[in-house]
Design a protein around this nucleic acid. Sequence first.
RNA 1: GUCCCCUUCGUCUAGAGGCCUAGGACAUUACCCUUUCACGGUAGUAACACGGGUUCGAAUCCCGUAGGGGACGCCA
Length: 470
Amino acid sequence: MPVITRFAPSPTGFLHIGGARTALFCWLFAKHHNGKFLMRIEDTDRARSTPESIETILDGMTWLGLDWDNKDYEGVGYYSQFAQRKRHAEVARQMVANGTAYYCYASTAELDAMRAEQKEKGLPQRYDGRWRDRPASDAPQGVPPVIRLKAPQTGETTIHDSVMGTITVQHSQLDDMVLLRADGTPTYMHAVVVDDYDMGITHVIRGEDHMTNTFRQVQIYKAMGWDIPTFAHLPMILGPDGAKLSKRHGAPAVSDYRDRGYLPEAVRNYLLRLCWSHGDDEIISPQQAIEWFDLGGIGKSPARFDFTKLGSVNAHYIKQTPDVELAKLTAPFIARFLERPLTAVQTDILTRAMPDLKPRAQTLVEIAEMAMFYFHEGVFTLDDKAKKILTPEAKQSLIDLTARLETLSDFTSESVESLFRAYAEEKALKLGAVAQPLRVALSGSTVSPPIFAVAGLLGKDETLRRIRAL
RNA sequence: GUCCCCUUCGUCUAGAGGCCUAGGACAUUACCCUUUCACGGUAGUAACACGGGUUCGAAUCCCGUAGGGGACGCCA
């Protein structure tokens, strides 16, 4: 049987980084087995679902390179849960007919009171089954009922989770959950099961927060006589402090990572290593990931998100990315700082500077910040450190040097360097004594890429202009 | 409160009863390289939550304790 997995986000916000990890694992598992990976939007909550959110989520998936196999579905490009509502209702009614579900006329206020009382008494908060065995003749007039599952009350259910192992829950822990709301729309619990069945999902891979739900959902499969898929519940991703990953930690949305200059392949590699391992391997190419990925490699314990490590993985992928492409990816960040797009000449400088830029950065934003001085016009504002470099002697050396630079016919990184080296030797100076002042002159800072390379890139005119502007 | 899951360096993890003097990566410290900052290289600090068992032998199996996470909606 071919493997079919799915990612089923609810379109009520952005694509969460934890969701992205789930999607990645589903995708990898399907790819590994030559199966299919499907996208389903869980939009049954009409009040909270928005088209913008769907777009954001799909964008995030595309950015990460996680393509789904039902892009042509019904012309919308994904399976919509809401569109299946008639089918959900039909199944619920079928369950009433076969005695595995029933109508419940309890009002919301009534149920709130019930839960409040249970809580006060320290009892487990569960629906007490007040309509479970009442005859249809008891139904009040004009009250639209919900349909509830008639859950088994004795015995137990065992599931064999591919990550968590064999887990058994007593049926006494289950309650009669709502399947179909009074307005005829399905609840999540019901819709997932029906959709997973209809879509032929063989492996339900999802977050651990769905673990206990699984035992309730299994009752629906049983009630309908459907085959139960394989479940794999992934441990949570926690924030650096061990609490739930949230806005407080800075970056819960996939788009945050794009905006901060992380490469999608780096984010994927980092995410892959959260709760999953393949021996001591850390840097794993997309091809290797597909080849190696298996459910057995997933750990059971939750992982904390570590931005520092993500940074180092990102640095690795930055170094691997070809200069032309990296320049293309960095240009928008620079353009944002400059408040105008880069000219062809500037793009060319950026590309040629890339070999010296990329080993120094962890993100595209850092590259952009570091590259800004190349495009600087006018006079630099120097900090104290830089000012300290420009002693009267240093300035004098620079003036001496401008005269010599002037005569250079072949103005390159190499020729400038040998000229500086010769000068330093002549004056019995360390190279740093002339290189540092040049660095300040050309970059406006005490820290920059190798300064002779900078001079070569800037060219003779601009180099002399910057020295004279001091 | 009830139920479920988890627990190896600061973090991600390797580990399937003897290969463990517990390995790797990130971070961190020192040194080397060096025109600055990085990159790179070398070396170091650093962990089996605790308590009981089982066994000739436990990070690994069992029980308990503590801590963490999750679920308990006409949200998904």
